[in-house]
Design a binder for these strands. Sequence first.
DNA 1: AGAAACACTTGCATTTTGCAACTATTCAAT
DNA 2: ATTGAATAGTTGCAAAATGCAAGTGTTTCT
Lengths: 139, 139
Amino acid sequence: MENQKSHCPINLSLEIFGDKWSLLIIRDMMFAGKRYFRELLQSDEKIATNILTDRLAMLELKGIISKAADPNHKLKYIYSLTKKGIELLPILAAIGTWGMKHEPYDTSIPSHAKKIMKGGKPVLDEMKKHLAKQHLKSK
Amino acid sequence: MENQKSHCPINLSLEIFGDKWSLLIIRDMMFAGKRYFRELLQSDEKIATNILTDRLAMLELKGIISKAADPNHKLKYIYSLTKKGIELLPILAAIGTWGMKHEPYDTSIPSHAKKIMKGGKPVLDEMKKHLAKQHLKSK
DNA sequence: AGAAACACTTGCATTTTGCAACTATTCAAT
DNA sequence: ATTGAATAGTTGCAAAATGCAAGTGTTTCT
């Protein structure tokens, strides 16, 4: 388990979410409000079930998300961002901002996403508060 | 070549640098001032030569770095960040900040790195100016 | 009672990564 | 001028990660 290449903070971070899928999962939880396995499966990028299973388990292990039984449905589990996960928001925002500036993105993207990317710190703080409300309820 | 999973700006960005190595290479160019193949090979994370070759070519293709013959040494090539590459700085800084907060990093890390991470926008702007001077000289 | 929804699991093919040895050219020292 | 080290890679193969399609065992819905 402890097999890290170095103790540089950037490397340690990338060993957690430096792959093709982890940040996309976080993105969908943050910006699209997805909370269930089936919802996360519906992304445009078409993640496979085994990969999604694997990543959710890893993200939970790393303390970025938590998993709880859905009180209303015995087959469903609800995934939540932890505080540590919510604090990935500035990273996602920076990546989104960079992508919007430098890559030919789909302009039919949710307009609130644009606002979040362009809105700067105040909008981000608001967003963070909102996420805390949605995800950190219990405990 | 054009085989992207979606046109979401975050996904487009991650299709470029959403792997274990690309951002580490950028990190070394930005924060450690590395400009040569051999220098980039010396990271703590021990990247293999074939992977480094592959990533440098990809990053050049994507317009994030540029490659030029070293005027003083016929075997050496000097790699530079482009404007597009320099603008990855906020992403690296956000990742570094997150890692320092949430993972047990090596405290013997270069102290200027800590300053950059913690210094906020003014320090980042200064850093950006410095990088532009070092990397965008010619042209 | 039967069908659909749910969160996975499994097996296999493909792709990516990692490792170690090797190459061809150029530089630097004798 | 010759030799050895340094340069930026290649190459071939093994290991790991990813991708794909089908299957599993409950639970919920109709």
